[in-house]
Nucleic acid binder design. Sequence first.
DNA 1: AAATTGTCTTGACAAATGTCAAGTCCGGGC
DNA 2: GCCCGGACTTGACATTTGTCAAGACAATTT
Lengths: 201, 201
Amino acid sequence: MQEAIFLMHDSLFKHIEIRTSEKLTDYEKEIISDAFAKKRMRKRQFFLQEGDVCKHLGFIVKGSSRMFSVDEKGHEHIIHFGLESWWLTDPESSIQLIPSRYFIEMLEDSELLVISLPDVYELRNKSRGFDLTFRALDKFSTIAMHKRIHAAIGMTAEERFSDLSSTYPEFLKRFPMNMIASYLGLSPETLSRVRKNAIRK
Amino acid sequence: MQEAIFLMHDSLFKHIEIRTSEKLTDYEKEIISDAFAKKRMRKRQFFLQEGDVCKHLGFIVKGSSRMFSVDEKGHEHIIHFGLESWWLTDPESSIQLIPSRYFIEMLEDSELLVISLPDVYELRNKSRGFDLTFRALDKFSTIAMHKRIHAAIGMTAEERFSDLSSTYPEFLKRFPMNMIASYLGLSPETLSRVRKNAIRK
DNA sequence: AAATTGTCTTGACAAATGTCAAGTCCGGGC
DNA sequence: GCCCGGACTTGACATTTGTCAAGACAATTT
């Protein structure tokens, strides 16, 4: 049992060391382990639900997720996906401490590491590697969101799909097409037709 | 002359103190002043051009800007606008040190404060207020980009325009409608029609 | 003042995308 | 093994949005 916990944390340590290009000290590993709780979630369980304030940050050790909103007409819009070593949070809710407009749902049986936001803050002060990781993540996600905006306002359906295929090929293997369509802001039917055309070429 | 420079820096100091809710020390003001250079730019001048690596950060003391890309068909897509006390940069280019895919153009005669990226890094280490400002900006821009993605993939033209009107009413006063259309990912004609309908209601 | 340029609108038409309905295929639950 | 529901596709049609062309008007330049 204890072993399994260490294995989960190892995946987080690895993530941090890769992102920062620095080794974690034993002390850092210890305080990081203490701050994160292991959490198993089943397919279709919600990490966050609309109306809740997002007070925790999740790290995906194994599994996948989607973050989506539901509009007045009941249509779902997928803001983004999560896969192994991605983080789960609603920045809008967690930064401003307001109720979230989104759901975060696990798409497979998953294993997470969960930490409270005050603990994140504390850990960033205590561990340089931990702090650097979050700075790097901020930069990384800024670039990714920029590209996404660019794609959404400036590309046709076909270009957006082709862009996704090269940027996140993993998405096509792990997520059903109707969700990919929602992520791209298309109807499933349009995506289906776009794909048929793309193959012909 | 010296006076004018101080006035410009004052606008930056004020911005930092508001963002951080803390007073800057005299020492901080001094090193910040030293690191930023004053720069006047005329309408239609470029702060950044496609293909250049973005090595400077700009702070708008007075004036406005737009950041846009040009696609293969020659169409421009506005990624975002800048107004007084907004920052000018291409995160993708400046973080990864790769050539930019964007232009940043001033839309009015403007006054900027400009700093090199290494100096930003140094200043963040030396001044707590300066560092906190950039952390706050990162959070702020993360939330803003999230909303923008949500709008782009999940809203109709009319909803996007109405969303923009309430979020950034200033844009409508300062920027021509064809640029607003580009920002929303619409043709100018569509925006014109959308506005006509919106008024009727 | 005249000429030029830019901004915005409008109409007619074309293209892209959404909606609704039906049908096939596949895999999980019983 | 059978049944059922989800995933994906296809067709017909509606709606939205884009494109092209023209014109009114205002601001800017000369």
